[in-house]
Design a protein around this nucleic acid. Structure first.
Length: 541
RNA sequence: GGCUCCGUAGCCAAGUGGCUAAGGCAGCGGAUUGCAAAUCCGCCAUCGUGGGUUCAACUCCCACCGGAGCCUCCA
């Protein structure tokens, strides 16, 4: 047995590197979270989903992981947006943070350990700026503090650009800078802007400093993994890196990870991109947004214009798990086209797993998902990579599943190749269906204790792999309504199934088919099996 | 203009200097079924174009074509 090596693509070196932690078996990772000035769109979910998966995988491999996602709750956009809406910046931030967190929950992102807000860390931020001034990497001009990029001879390495090519941010701040590439660490407050007291007067932090300050507070001066969207490489991460390295005289991060950006399938062009205005102007109503904008009139302004708005609606139409699976189907570093069609396709493929799981529960009586019933038998899984014991079986399907498990894991080892790994998941499912069919487990005669045991072992591996990807954790919702109506629905459908069965015994296929077709027409699919008929809701859009 | 990345079947998508180029969706043929659905079996790709390097390239290099991103609002 060889010890697996995890390899990670590092933006800083532009290479895949062997993963080595700073402290043995401990991993600190930081993901740049949202500026909470508008509702989240699907693009905001890429980083959280891949980092959530990375954390699950690293834990599975035996690491102890601390994951931090920051919430930027003070910034120009927040100030402007809250004025438009006539509410306080705090109110806006609170509402949008709640939206963000609800979306994360729907997508099964539940591994975050710390969610620090910029406004809760003012002392730490101010201290950080003071340190940079004391070390002469920053200078004060009026009430503003700027970072002096010329003092940092490594500036530009992450994004591969030279200091003298910097345009610099425009506006009235430009005149107070020493060189155009300098960026604000602290901005003096204009009248009636939210502000905090500082050694330089009333003001607020610049965009990049909060991440340096908060990551240091929670993860230390140097930590293992830092991530965000590809669009954050410059200027955000370049500046963050400069601040922290200059302040501490040691590297900020070992591995820099950047995810690719989402692209709306129909309204081509980056979601929430800076080209929104010009593209909207040049392409009138012909490019309908892929995703309907928020229907709530008051909130319409908040949602982004191009297929980006209404993640909540997207989740309602497609389920969070489907969106998560869609995101994991391709490599996190690639640009991904998304739209209802793409999500529906991901959903269609996911259905096969749900059907297999239903089959399993029906045949074995074991709950695949955790059951609330205390006396129920739940499917147990192996939770740590090194504790896996391959079933001692000559059975072809089981041998193959064990091989596929290895294939799955080695894809994850290679820069978290979730897209490749999902392929193995499908193959595992096929092996299991084949096992059911060839062993005739749909009939009582095939349900020998050995067969049931092997079946459970195979399913356990499927669940184990699913838990790494953060899928198949909960039973998919059959209906969005509450449990009462779900029970009622189940009763009604079963009644119809019984009527149809009676008709079939009488070989009255006209009646039986009309029951089945009628149900299908309203989204209820019937499946005839050896031991009666089952039903499921067609989730496809 | 500077700096990146990408181009694999109808569509989505992994991957590799040489062995059958994963997997999914759709489609087609078969098994199964009263008929379906589901499931299983089978079929469905010379890897953008043109050069070069090499015993050997889809994989490396160059050019071109096409697409995407960054160059101080972006996840």
């Amino acid at each position: 047995m060889t010890i697996n090596t995890i390899r990670i693509y590092n933006t800083l070196t532009k290479n895949k590197e062997e993963f080595k932690t700073i402290e043995p078996n401990k991993v600190g990772m930081y993901l740049c979270g949202p500026t909470v000035y508008a509702e989240a769109h699907i693009g905001h979910m890429v980083g959280p989903v891949i980092f959530d998966t990375i954390k699950r995988f690293l834990q599975y491999c035996g690491f102890e992981v601390t994951w931090v996602v920051n919430i930027t709750d003070v910034d120009d956009k927040l100030i402007n947006r809250s004025r438009e809406k006539g509410i306080s910046m705090f109110q806006l931030a609170t509402a949008m943070t709640a939206d963000y967190l609800a979306n994360l929950q729907s997508l099964g992102v539940d591994q975050i350990d710390h969610l620090p807000r910029a406004t809760d860390n003012m002392d730490e931020i101010i201290r950080f700026v003071e340190e940079l001034i004391a070390k002469d990497f920053a200078y004060v001009n009026g009430g503003d503090v700027f970072f002096d990029v010329l003092k940092d001879n490594e500036y530009g390495r992450l994004s591969n650009r030279s200091v003298d090519s910097q345009q610099g941010e425009g506006g009235d701040a430009a005149s107070r800078k020493r060189s155009p590439g300098d960026f604000a660490l602290w901005k003096s407050a204009k009248a009636d802007e939210p502000s905090w007291q500082s050694p330089w007067g009333l003001g607020r932090p610049g965009w990049h400093i909060e991440c340096s300050a908060m990551s240091r507070r929670i993860l230390g001066k140097t930590f293992d993994i830092h991530g965000g969207g590809l669009d954050l490489v410059f200027p955000h991460h370049e500046n963050e890196l400069a601040q922290s390295r200059c302040c501490h005289g040691q590297p900020m991060v070992t591995y820099w990870l950047h995810n690719g950006l989402m692209q709306a399938a129909e309204a081509k062009g980056k979601v929430g991109g800076k080209n929104d205005r010009e593209e909207n102007a040049s392409t009138p109503s012909s490019t309908a947004p892929t995703v309907a904008p928020a229907s709530n009139g008051a909130d319409t302004k908040i949602s982004r214009s191009k297929g980006a708005g209404g993640l909540a609606q997207l989740i309602e139409r497609h389920t969070g798990e489907r969106i998560r699976f869609f995101l994991l189907r391709s490599h996190y570093r690639s640009t991904t086209l998304f739209g209802d069609e793409q999500l529906a396709e991901a959903g269609a493929s996911l259905e096969a797993f749900y059907r297999l799981i239903q089959r399993f529960e029906r045949i074995t009586g074991i709950h695949f998902y955790k059951s609330s019933d205390k006396d129920a038998k739940n499917l147990e899984i192996n939770r740590k990579r090194e504790t896996f014991v391959a079933p001692d079986s000559k059975n072809e399907a089981i041998v193959e599943i064990v091989r596929l498990r290895e294939a799955f894991l080695s894809k994850m080892d290679d820069d978290f190749n979730t897209g490749g790994a999902t392929g193995d998941l499908f193959e595992i499912a096929r092996c299991l269906n084949r096992f059911i069919d060839s062993g005739k487990l749909e009939e009582a005669a095939g349900r020998t204790p050995e067969n049931l045991e092997l079946f459970a072992q195979g399913m356990s591996i499927l669940k184990e792999m699913g838990s790494i990807l953060g899928i198949f954790q909960k039973a998919p919702k059959q209906s969005s309504s509450n449990d009462n109506t779900t029970e009622l629905l189940d009763g009604l459908v079963k009644l119809l199934i019984q009527l149809r069965a009676d008709a079939r015994t009488k070989r009255d296929f006209a009646t039986s088919d009309s029951v089945r077709d009628g149900l299908l027409g309203i989204g209820v699919a019937l499946q005839d099996g050896k031991e009666g008929t089952t039903w499921s809701i067609q989730r496809n859009a």
